[in-house]
Amino acid sequence: MFLLKRRTVSEAIFDLCNGLLMLCICFLTLYPIWYTLVNAFNDGTDAMRGGIYWWPREFSLSSFDAVFRSEGIMTAMGITVAKTIIGVPVHVLFTAMVAYAFSRKELIGGKLYMLIGTFTMFFSGGLIPYYLLIRDLHLIDNFLVYIVPAAFSFFDLIIFLSFFREIPAGLEEAAKIDGANDLKIFYQVIIPCSMPVIATIALFHGVYQWNDYFTGMIYMNNMDLQPIQTYLFRVIAQSSSNQMLAAMPSGVAVTVTSQSLKLATMVVTTAPIVLVYPFLQKYFVKGFMIGSIKG
């Protein structure tokens, strides 16, 4: 016979306070997003009067119409999609190849390489030396600046390395008996067995590529090659929203303000990754659990 343990009054109060605290944190996290959506879908001139907190007072799509009429945002969206589609497989493949080499026990100087790589995770040369390096590589105003410097991450290498070390050595030995070399083993044995960690790293880097605005802001002077997040930064922090309004047809700009245009641009630029992320969030948890202590 099992007896259910009754909770004491102090435990019940703790659970109640804990639940209320979690609700407050959720509200503080989600309400700014909701506020942005409400004001973005509201008429711009009406929103200037204030008092809009929960629902649009005068529903309007004029701000979104103005955003999509801008040629700059569609070009920036194309650059972001292109660098994400190209950058993710390049990063995953290159990092996985280096991690596989690190996982080999016969690698000469492996411990030294790990020490050097770990050091770079915490210390760097700074922005100015890095800018000079990018300049000397002729990557300024070059689309490859989004791909080449981000092709490798030592943090992602550690995740790959932890997973590769869990793959049974017998699989590689069987492949060697069949005459496979290291490259063939990597592509035909290691990669098919590593799809969970590959999905994890692909999601890590995909989110990074989509949200990265700093690279376009520092290393890209050509407006036609700037990604969507850099475009959003210019709209919010600079006078680009006023320039967009000036370029709008007179019938459109009547109900659109600089503030409503900024909010609509924020929604357009962040909506794709926000909608995709909840369906892929489990891979983040799984990625951090890879290589953890098992009971």
Rank of each mutant, 00 (worst) to 15 (best):
M195D: 03
A253S: 15
Y31L: 07
S103A: 12
L183Q: 06
I13W: 12
P168A: 06
G216S: 11
V267W: 02
M217L: 14
I290T: 09
L225I: 04
E172N: 10
R6A: 14
E106M: 09
V285Q: 12
V189A: 08
C26R: 10
R6L: 13
M217E: 05
G44C: 08
N42R: 09
L3N: 15
V67R: 01
R49D: 12
I198D: 00
L107V: 02
P56E: 04
E166G: 14
N242Q: 13
K286L: 13
L183T: 08
K282H: 14
K176W: 02
M97P: 01
V90A: 00
Y53S: 09
R69S: 12
I273N: 02
P168G: 07
S162D: 06
G126Y: 11
T230P: 00
T230G: 00
F119S: 10
K176V: 07
E166H: 13
G78W: 08
T255Y: 09
Q238G: 14
K286E: 12
D46V: 15
I79C: 03
I73D: 07
K176E: 08
Y53I: 06
L23N: 07
T80G: 09
I33E: 03
T270I: 13
Q259I: 11
F160A: 03
F94D: 00
S62C: 04
Q238V: 08
V88F: 01
M223G: 06
G179L: 07
G206K: 01
T45N: 07
L203A: 03
I79Q: 02
F122S: 14
D65M: 10
